[in-house]
Design a protein around this nucleic acid. Structure first.
Lengths: 384, 384
DNA sequence: CGACCTTGGTTAAGCCGCTTTACTAACAAA
DNA sequence: TTTGTTAGTAAAGCGGCTTAACCAAGGTCG
């Protein structure tokens, strides 16, 4: 027989044992290669057509064609010839028009205030807004999000590619909020709803997942990484081999309610000793309240160690390259982080922990907004 | 701008922040759709062209063309008309010729004896062989594997699609053994070497990873799952959203040397309290030696609980659907398994553990052989 | 200085792979 | 027997990439 090589088809588990793959058409080829070009321009900056061809291993002909379409769409522009090259005809640089389009991003991770921004395609904030939530929940909260988003859309000075939203809760790939107790959202198709009302592509995902995505694309994080987002609670976003992990019930990353202390404090979830009872902004502030620096560091290190102990099996199972901490730096970036790193290193084998870093996220308060932007970039342009 | 939708391009992290995607050509479209057809025939059995078209959402024309090629290659055959249908022309069933090709699989997970088999495409063993290793290591062991494989190839009664090997150690995607201390293999391109010598496609992967793959394809396991392989040590294979997890340094699944006891027994790795000091066939046998059934169950339950405590964060981070245990059933399938399941459930939130099962692997001693076969099926035919 | 070389980019022709449309084949129901 | 329904094939067309051949615009070198 001929040793024909099949593709590594993207698979998805469907119920019991049935695997579905989607058909691929010639135009998907185009979409893929187009995304590859945009991806390159996005990360490497202005590039000549010839260099694009070399980078993608497509031919100059195909690249030229592709670029001409992108120029016609306004996504790309010619930037003049590259001076000072060697022999041969000097190259014409083409680059993404990163400021000619904008993205609206909304961060719902805080219970009390929603934050939003108008961003360029490179994630620079052009306009920021905040809005008190005033204990609104359920449909009322949806209306408020819509209104808030409309305001941001009005503030946009360029065509908007789409809206990205990071929200707490369990959210499926289509942006349906399956469960977000604090918001009183259950099985709410938030993305579809807003997309309909705003007549724009809207993408919704879990805030911690989105934060991980943001760090991956804008923060330079590795493709196998876990981000621990510390706020009113704890969540995590996980990326494996460059792809977001969703899990069987879309609940991947729900680390806040793993038991970490056998006779720990009671938790809001009804059980005892959850990670969240120790590691959350309020819990940490309580833990260090009234202590001098030294004593506070001891307390923080204890929490850090617990985090490290909890993450060691995860790091081993996935052979992660990085663990990022996101949240209040005064609490996390110090004794806590160091103790967590030490514990992970101490409790894993060298093959797993060599090269591993436990570090702070680089995007600070904008992680979720940036990540929400990546959600849009990835879905609309294939960039991440 | 036009709201063009990009593809979810397959990405891979390359060093720091650089992402590479491979170009896609029209013929990749073909390969993908071809794999999809084979995949369907493999899992659903004989199917008419018209049903294949409906299942894949390709047109009957394309399916007919694809099938005719597969028939010409000998991979597929017509099986006569489907009797007793409703109105209309009765359909001609086509099916994979699962017995017209064979796969050679080798299991190197045991230190002392290598096991191998000639399998049909559905994983049925046609011939089994064993060979004492006699403390051979390094190049000598490679030669022995080659000789052993040659024997199996000679025993094959049908054309062989390829050779699959499951081996302990850290192994990269190209089948290069980066590190396998007990075999004295370091940075050994085993797959390339054997492929060259045997003039056949050879695929090599970690034994636990391969076991997970086997359970996924032949054992009906879910797409987000972790398999704990207990033998002379402990390893794990992880699948997330239907794809194998490799990790940054190809060391994903190395759970044996996670610390689980703060002042535990000394481990061969030089540290103390590794999971492997409690959970391995020898360690378990020692633990229950001389105990009556009840006392043995208490001892096994203690280990099971430790395993559950270790896995709880992993299950939460990935929202796994299943955890499988593979190894000696007399030790694992009972108090140990139940305690592990109880601990995972007890220590994770409902959204994570509802629907989760901790169960025994179904393929018993053949897991690694079956998995090695899947390695070949996936690489050569796109089936998994 | 002009011929030649090198590199960037475009045009034309061709192949591959899918779709739509239109056809034939084979059966059940009326 | 006619009609309707479903399976499968044939022909034409379109999208998307490649190769081959070309022009453009600069260096290098005799």
């Amino acid at each position: 027989m001929s040793a024909t090589t099949g593709t590594g088809a993207t698979r998805r588990a469907l119920g019991f044992g049935l695997r579905a793959t989607a058909k691929v058409l010639p135009e998907h080829t185009r979409a893929h290669n187009r995304a590859m070009v945009l991806q390159h321009l996005f990360h490497a900056g202005p590039t000549s057509r010839a260099d694009l061809a070399r980078a993608t291993s497509l031919t100059r002909v195909t690249i030229s064609d592709l670029v001409s379409v992108l120029i016609a769409e306004g996504l790309v522009e010619e930037l003049g010839v590259q001076r000072g090259g060697g022999v041969g005809k000097p190259a014409m640089l083409v680059g993404m028009r990163t400021h000619a389009f904008q993205i609206v991003a909304v961060d719902l991770s805080d219970d009390t205030v929603m934050r939003g921004a108008v961003l360029t395609l490179t994630g620079e904030a052009v306009e920021r807004r905040c809005l008190e939530v005033d204990d609104r929940t359920g449909d009322e909260l949806v209306d408020l999000v819509e209104e808030f988003t409309r305001g941001l859309l009005d503030a946009a000075t360029q065509p908007v590619v789409g809206v990205g939203i990071g929200s707490p809760g369990v959210i499926d790939v289509d942006g349906r909020v399956l469960e977000a107790p604090n918001r009183r959202w259950t099985d709410l198709p938030l993305a579809a709803l807003l997309s309909e009302r705003l007549d724009l592509p809207v993408h919704v995902a879990n805030d911690a997942d989105v934060a991980a995505l943001g760090e991956y694309t804008f923060g330079g994080a590795e493709g196998s990484m876990l981000l621990v987002a510390v706020g009113q609670g704890v969540g995590a976003g996980v990326m494996v081999d460059g792809a977001r992990v969703h899990g069987v019930r879309h609940a991947a990353g729900e680390l806040g309610h793993v038991t970490v202390a056998d006779d720990g404090l009671p938790c809001a979830c009804g059980r005892r000793g959850c990670l969240e009872t120790l590691l959350s902004a309020p819990a940490l502030r309580r833990a260090v309240a009234g202590l001098d620096t030294e004593a506070a560091d001891v307390a923080l290190a204890a929490v850090g160690r617990t985090l490290g102990v909890t993450l060691a099996p995860v790091v081993s199972a996935l052979n992660l390259g990085e663990v990022l901490l996101s949240g209040p730096a005064d609490l996390l970036d110090g004794a806590l982080r160091e103790a967590a790193e030490a514990a992970v290193v101490e409790r894993t084998m060298p093959a797993v922990h060599t090269g591993l870093r436990v570090r702070m996220a680089t995007l600070d308060e904008d992680v979720v907004l940036s990540g929400a932007a990546v959600l849009v970039l990835a879905a609309q342009l294939g960039i991440s």
